[in-house]
Design a protein around this nucleic acid. Structure first.
Lengths: 229, 229
DNA sequence: GTCTATAGCTTGATAGAC
DNA sequence: GTCTATCAAGCTATAGAC
């Protein structure tokens, strides 16, 4: 399995199809079929939608967040949303896409190397990923409405692939699988910022520490400062 | 602050297979609402509703579970539901009530004792509580729709009271609070059964082990068998 | 690209017969 | 205690003007 496309998401989008397999419909007879006349306004709007939608969904949950609410907060109409995304599910898929691509790459990179160092690298990478996408990962991992979303059923196997890699064995037993689940949950829980101005560095360091302990990975004796104890 | 009444909850009926946990604590009054003519048929129905509703809500989330769905699964009509519960929020409060009472009692019992033994006792108690109410706690802790539910805003302070008690200090700093959040999340994550027939004992032991490690509590050198490692 | 307007459906909740 | 029938309000999604 090579590179997987999660939605059409990438940092600098050059085309605007919300859905990967959607036929490209010529929207305006005067311009190029692939985009806006000036080439960037549409993408900016799209990015704003993703931004606001994530904020709301992370706060209220996917099912409890209506498209009306999202549009209202943006100062546009629902119809504008539906120009950029075919369905509400597609919107969620686009929000989640970039982080899923990263996770995919992380797992791919870890390969099947079960050495302690490789496992530690995977844990570090995962902590880093979750730290940068805290809201998003919390939605993915906790919101039950997500697993009902058809555009996202590909995300669940990804998390499952994480289990044997972190356990360090191809067929982990109950205790090993449980330890992995506990470690992942601990990472998620640690990185949901409690107080508004908690130092993110401390959050990350603590998450890593607890996850390593859960997985039985030794603390590396590194020159960098440890956060006490 | 003494015993708190959480909703109009009473212990649910003794049979039933769907949830499979034995609720045992008698919390308060005879649960008969204003007009039960025979005194027990209504309670049975009520218990069935709570049971089925929890199952559905745990699976789909609160916001995504409609009263129609609950009623349909029960073979009754929505109106029957609304005879037993004034609103959908009240239904959730009744579902969650017993476990909240238990948590309340657990915290009360732990008092302000910051000794290592007291903290360990609290962790053990919490693991036990979550193990017996896994579905429920997951909804409470993870479903964003819950914190929007007016009947339940009293539950959030409860979890917050847990933090200083587990941290072992009245004013925990960022790292200490983070460790507590990680430990609680780890417990929740460990106790959500992955495979249908995972040994619950292993799940509980692993949850306890990881939580202790996260909180810096020593493993007690007890005669009871440890689960490997 | 964004709008207005609206179709078509589901929701939570109520009234009143039995 | 449970039903049928019904409500207003909200929802996702679409059509078509500008």
């Amino acid at each position: 399995m090579g590179a997987v496309v999660w939605g059409t998401t990438e940092p600098k989008a050059s085309d605007m199809g919300a859905c990967g397999e959607a036929p490209e419909v010529a929207l305006g007879s005067t311009g190029a079929p692939s985009g806006a006349t000036h080439g960037h306004t549409g993408d900016q709007t799209r990015a704003r939608i993703l931004d606001v939608a994530l904020e709301l969904i992370a706060d209220r949950g996917f099912a409890a967040t209506s498209t009306r609410e999202i549009a209202e907060r943006l100062g546009v109409t629902k119809a504008a949303l539906y120009y950029h995304f075919r369905t509400k599910d597609d919107l969620l898929a686009a929000i989640v896409g970039p982080a899923m691509s990263e996770l995919d790459a992380l797992i791919e990179q870890a390969g099947a190397d079960a050495s302690s160092d490789a496992r530690d690298g995977l844990v570090c990478g995962y902590v880093d990923l979750v730290a940068r996408h805290a809201d998003l990962i919390r939605v993915l991992a906790n919101d039950p409405a997500v697993k009902e979303c058809a555009s996202l059923h590909a995300a669940i196997p990804l998390f499952q692939r994480l289990v044997p890699l972190l356990a360090g064995t191809d067929e982990p037993d109950t205790a090993q699988r449980t330890r992995v689940r506990a470690a992942l949950s601990a990472i998620h829980g640690a990185l949901v910022r409690g107080q508004p101005a908690d130092d993110p560095g401390i959050l990350r360091a603590t998450a890593l520490q607890v996850a390593r302990a859960a997985l039985g990975l030794p603390e590396p004796a590194s020159p960098v400062a440890q956060t006490r104890r």
